[in-house]
Design a protein around this nucleic acid. Structure first.
Length: 262
DNA sequence: GAAGAAGATTTCAGGTGGCC
DNA sequence: GGCCACCTGAAATCTTCTTC
C-alpha cells in the first residue's frame, strides 16, 4: 500500500520541487512490500512532464551530500531511534516493577494504572497531612475566622500563606502584617523542600461595627496584605521558578531528565 | 563577543509487517 | 484486531563554524 501526500516542507522540498510536482507517492515503513515491488520511503514522485511516477532524486543539502553519506545518516537515525525506544521501554519496565498489579498489562494499561495510583497516593497524602502544617504545591493565601474564646471585644483571624521560599519572604511578611497594626497571637512556619507554609493568628479591636462586618473588614485587609507578598514573588521571575513552563521543547538526557545530553 | 548559517542530534508522529 | 518493534520524514533543538 502507498499513500499520497503533499510535501509540506518548502525548504527541504525545494531542491527538486521545480522539477517535479510536489504531489508525491510515499512508500513508508520498514521494508514496505507490495507484491514483488519494494517501495522505499520517499522513493517515488510524480513527474508532471512525463505524467508518471519516477524515482525521486536523493534529497541533497545545499553543499551536496553523497548518497553514501545520506545512507549512513539514515542508518544512524534508525539506530538512534532504536536506542530511544529502548530507553522508553526501560523506563516502562521500571514502572512495571513499581506497580503492584502489573500482570499482563500493555503499555497503555500500565500508564493508566500508574496515573491511577499516583492520583491515589496524592489523595492519601493529602488526607494524612490534614491537621499538620505542611506546605502544598500551589501558592495560596487563606484567611478564616478564629475563635479566640476571649470575648473581650476583639476579633481574630487565622491567616495562612503557602509559597516558594525566598530570602526576603519573612521581612516582606513582617512589613505587610506590621502595616495592619494588629496583634500577632500566634505564628507557625513549616517548610518542605523549597516550599514554606506560614500560619498567623491575628487579633484586632472591633471599633463599633457589628462582628460580621468587623470580621469581613479584618479578613479582607489581612488577605490583601498577604496577597501582596505573594504577588511580589510572582512579579520577579527569580522568585518563582515554577510559574511558567517553557514553550519550547526541552531536550532530556539519557540518564537524567533534568540535564542536557551530548 | 554577538548573530547567523549550517550541520548534527533528538523527538514526535505516522505508517508497516509480524506475532498472538 | 490489538499490540509491538521498526523505519522514516519532519520539526525542534543543540552544537559548531563563520562573519562582522
Amino acid at each position: 500500500m502507498a499513500f499520497y501526500s503533499f510535501d509540506s516542507n518548502p525548504t527541504i522540498g525545494s531542491d527538486y520541487s521545480s522539477l517535479f510536482n510536489p504531489f508525491t507517492l510515499h512508500g513508508s515503513g520498514g521494508g514496505l512490500t507490495n507484491g514483488s515491488v519494494q517501495l522505499l520511503p520517499h522513493s517515488l514522485v510524480l513527474d508532471s512532464e512525463k505524467g508518471e511516477l519516477v524515482k525521486a532524486p536523493a534529497r541533497v543539502g545545499k553543499k551536496g551530500v553523497s548518497e553514501a553519506k545520506a545512507l549512513a545518516a539514515l542508518k544512524n537515525h534508525s539506530e538512534a531511534e532504536r536506542r530511544r525506544r529502548e530507553r522508553i521501554n526501560a523506563h516502562l519496565s521500571t514502572l512495571r516493577g513499581l506497580v503492584p498489579r502489573n500482570e499482563k498489562m500493555d503499555k497503555a494499561a500500565l500508564l493508566a494504572e500508574v496515573i491511577r495510583q499516583v492520583k491515589e497516593l496524592k489523595k492519601d497524602s493529602l488526607e494524612s497531612s490534614k491537621g499538620f502544617l505542611i506546605p502544598i504545591d500551589a501558592d495560596e493565601v487563606k484567611v478564616e475566622h478564629y475563635d479566640s474564646g476571649v470575648g473581650d471585644g476583639t476579633i481574630s483571624v487565622r491567616a495562612s500563606i503557602c509559597c516558594e521560599y525566598r530570602s526576603e519572604l519573612l521581612s516582606d511578611l513582617k512589613e505587610a502584617l506590621d502595616s495592619l497594626h494588629l496583634k500577632m497571637v500566634k505564628a507557625e512556619m513549616a517548610t518542605l523542600g523549597n516550599r514554606v507554609h506560614n500560619v498567623f493568628v491575628l487579633t484586632g479591636y472591633n471599633k463599633g461595627n457589628n462582628d460580621a462586618e468587623a470580621y469581613q473588614l479584618l479578613a479582607s485587609s489581612v488577605h490583601h496584605a498577604l496577597s501582596s507578598v505573594l504577588d511580589k514573588a510572582s512579579i520577579s521571575p527569580e522568585y518563582s521558578p515554577r510559574t511558567t513552563l517553557p514553550t519550547k521543547r526541552r531536550r532530556t538526557s539519557y540518564f537524567d531528565t533534568s540535564s542536557s545530553s551530548s
